[in-house]
Design a binder for these strands. Structure first.
Length: 254
DNA sequence: TACCCGTGGTC
DNA sequence: TGACCAAGGGT
C-alpha cells in the first residue's frame, strides 16, 4: 500500500484490511475481486492484485509465513527491492539497507551534497546506505527508519527544514550553502486528466460498484472516445484486473 | 533504460 | 490553478 502512496492515506485502509484479512492465508482464501474492491481508490490497483497473488504464494510456498530473506521476498509478486528490504529490516530486524525515495533524498543531500536525488539505482543506493548502517542490529534498524522518517518529515522535497534537522552540523549540502540542483531536471509527471490512467480508473470504478458483470455498452458509457476506451479496457484485461468479453460481459477477476 | 501504472493533497 | 509529489514495481 505504501508504494508511491502517502503514509497518511494508507493508515486507515491498512487498519480495515488487517481486520478483514489478518493473515496471508485469509487473504488467499478470498477471491481477487474482493481485494480489488477493498483496495477502493488507493490507486495503482495492480497492487491489490499483486498483494492477493503474494498472499497465495506465501500460503503455498512458505506455509503462510512471510519469509525473512531478501531473496525469497524478491521472488514474490509485487515485492521489489524496496519492499523486500523494508520487510527484512523492520519486520525481522535484518541488517540490510532500505532505500526509498526519502532515503535517496537524504543520502543525496547529507552525504553527496546534492540538492536533489538521482534516479533509483540499486548499485549506487544500496552500498551508500549500507555504509551508513552501524554494526548493531537494533541501531541499524533505527538508522534505516530514521533516514526514511527524516526524509519524510524534515528533509522534504520542496522546502527542507534545515533549521530543525539533526544532521545540520554534518550535512554536506547544507555546509556547502545549499547549492542549486545542477543536472537536468527530472521529467515532469504526465497529466492525469484525460489520460489512459483516468479511463482505466473510471472503468474499474464501475466494476467495483457492480455485483453483476457489466455489459459492453455499460463499459462504453464511461468514456466517449472509442479508441482510448478500447485501449484502456484492453490494458485492464492484459493486467488481469478485468475478465470477460463483449459477449459475456466484463467483471473483476475471481 | 524509459515508460507505464491512480489518486488526492499541497503550495 | 496547475504543476509537483507521494515508504515503487513490472516490463
Amino acid at each position: 500500500m505504501l508504494q508511491q502512496t502517502p503514509v497518511v492515506r494508507v493508515i486507515p485502509r491498512l487498519a480495515e484490511w488487517l481486520e478483514r484479512w489478518p493473515t496471508p492465508a485469509s487473504l488467499a482464501a478470498s477471491p481477487a475481486s474482493d481485494a480489488v474492491r477493498a483496495w477502493d481508490r488507493l490507486g495503482y490497483p495492480r497492487r491489490a492484485l499483486n498483494l492477493h497473488a503474494c498472499a497465495v504464494a506465501i500460503t503455498e510456498r512458505h506455509g503462510g509465513v512471510v519469509p525473512s530473506d531478501v531473496s525469497e521476498l524478491l521472488a514474490l509478486p509485487g515485492i521489489g527491492d524496496y519492499t523486500a528490504r523494508a520487510i527484512a529490516a523492520f519486520a525481522y530486524g535484518r541488517r540490510v539497507p532500505v532505500v526509498d525515495t526519502n532515503v535517496r533524498r537524504v543520502l543525496a543531500r547529507a552525504v553527496e551534497g546534492l540538492a536533489e536525488p538521482w534516479a533509483p539505482n540499486a548499485k549506487r543506493d544500496l552500498p551508500l546506505m549500507e555504509g551508513q548502517l552501524p554494526p548493531d542490529l537494533d541501531d541499524a534498524r533505527d538508522t534505516n527508519a530514521g533516514a526514511m522518517e527524516l526524509g519524510a518529515l524534515v528533509c522534504v522535497a520542496r522546502t527542507p527544514r534545515c533549521d530543525v534537522c539533526p544532521l545540520a552540523d554534518r550535512c554536506a549540502w547544507l555546509l556547502a550553502g545549499r547549492p542549486e540542483h545542477a543536472g537536468p531536471k527530472a521529467r515532469t509527471q504526465k497529466k492525469y486528466e484525460g489520460s489512459d490512467r483516468q479511463v482505466r480508473g473510471l472503468i474499474l470504478r464501475e466494476l467495483r460498484a457492480s455485483d453483476v458483470p457489466l455489459t459492453a455498452a455499460e463499459v462504453e458509457s464511461v468514456w466517449g472516445e472509442p479508441a482510448q476506451r478500447d485501449r484502456a479496457l484492453a490494458s485492464l484485461l492484459r493486467d488481469g484486473l478485468v475478465t470477460g468479453s463483449a459477449d459475456e460481459g466484463y467483471s473483476l477477476p475471481e
